[in-house]
Simulated assay, not measured.
Amino acid sequence: MSVAQDFVKYGKKIIAIGRNYDAHIKELGNPPNAEPWFFLKPTTAYLRNGGTILIPEGVQMHHEIELGVVIGKEGRDIPKEDWEQYVAGYALGIDLTARNFQQYVKAKSLPWTSAKGFDTFCPISEFVPKEEISDPMNLVIWIKVNDQERQRGNTSKMIYDIPELIRHCSSIMTLQEGDLILTGTPEGALGLIVHGDNITAGLESPEGKLLASWNGDAANRIGGYKFAQQV
């Protein structure tokens, strides 16, 4: 098995694109971006299908369903027209956010990696080879909590498409085999996940064929960091 095929084990970084769907920007009351904007999540946040999401004490956890792009070979300053040469495949990812923690540190102009980087904060599906997806810019992504749909969107609604994301990210940092680019989330990302919830998510073709999925539960974390907002 190649590094890209087992990116969860061997990948070095998760690049998460923010504010890449207009409706999501509006629901959070954020201004649009002049260019793609991203942050990093640690690979220790990965959680394979069937795992249990752990909610740190004091955290209000929100879900953000996203298409992930798995990088297949190292590249720097990649031209847009060459983007596909650097893609090994795709995956379905959930970018979990400690929203109250994030809002607190953002209000103080502090970094908010911690709010995105807890263990289990990146549930991830199986690897999908690029040959199985004819058009990654026309895929349906959705997430349900306790069988109630929370988010559903189409990757065609991205502000910045995958070729531009690869060009932009590689102009800043070298992309390596096994890296994952989470491409942003559609509207509906303010939904709360709490102890005992069941979470299901899917990546589908426009015709409704299921290409990848994730299913697991959520539970309160015992021990570890506790978020207590300071006045």
Rank of each mutant, 00 (worst) to 15 (best):
Q230R: 14
K80P: 06
L210T: 13
D6W: 07
I199A: 08
V145R: 07
Y104D: 15
P111T: 05
T185S: 08
I17K: 09
N49S: 11
S114D: 14
E187Y: 01
D217G: 01
S2E: 11
E66A: 10
E66Q: 03
G202T: 02
L92D: 08
I143Y: 05
P186H: 10
I143K: 00
P186T: 08
E177C: 10
D147G: 11
A16Q: 02
W112D: 11
N215Y: 08
G153C: 11
L40C: 14
G216M: 03
Q229Y: 13
Y160Q: 09
N138G: 02
E131P: 04
G18N: 13
G216N: 01
G216H: 04
L67K: 00
F227C: 10
V231Q: 14
A201W: 07
N138Y: 06
V105E: 12
A115H: 14
G72L: 11
Y21P: 04
L54C: 09
I14D: 02
H24A: 12
L165A: 06
E131W: 06
L139C: 06
D197Q: 03
L203R: 01
I143W: 05
K9H: 12
Q85Y: 08
E132V: 05
Y104K: 15
Q151F: 05
G51F: 08
E74H: 09
I133P: 10
V87H: 08
I124K: 04
A228W: 02
V231I: 11
E66H: 09
G29K: 01
A212F: 09
G75E: 13
N100D: 13
R99K: 07
K41E: 01
S156Y: 13
E207Y: 14
A115C: 12
N220L: 15
V105H: 13
P186Y: 03
K209M: 10
T200G: 06
G178A: 10
I53K: 01
K209R: 14
V145M: 00
I222E: 15
A219H: 07
G51T: 04
L180D: 01
L180T: 02
V145I: 07
K9V: 12
R99N: 09
T183L: 02
V194G: 13
S114P: 12
N220T: 11
T120C: 00
Q151W: 10
I17W: 06
T185M: 05
F7D: 00
E131Y: 00
K13I: 11
Y90K: 04
A201Q: 04
D6R: 14
H63T: 10
V231F: 15
L182P: 01
F227A: 03
K26A: 12
D95K: 03
W214K: 01
T185D: 06
W83V: 03
K108T: 01
E126P: 00
P31M: 03
Y46C: 12
N100T: 05
I222Y: 07
E84Q: 15
P163S: 14
N138Q: 10
I14V: 15
E74Y: 00
I181Y: 07
Y104P: 12
L180C: 01
E64I: 04
L110A: 12
D161E: 07
G216R: 07
K80V: 11
E187C: 04
D161V: 05
S109D: 14
Y90F: 06
G58D: 04
G51M: 09
M137D: 15
C169E: 14
T113P: 01
I166D: 12
R152T: 10
P42R: 06
N20F: 07
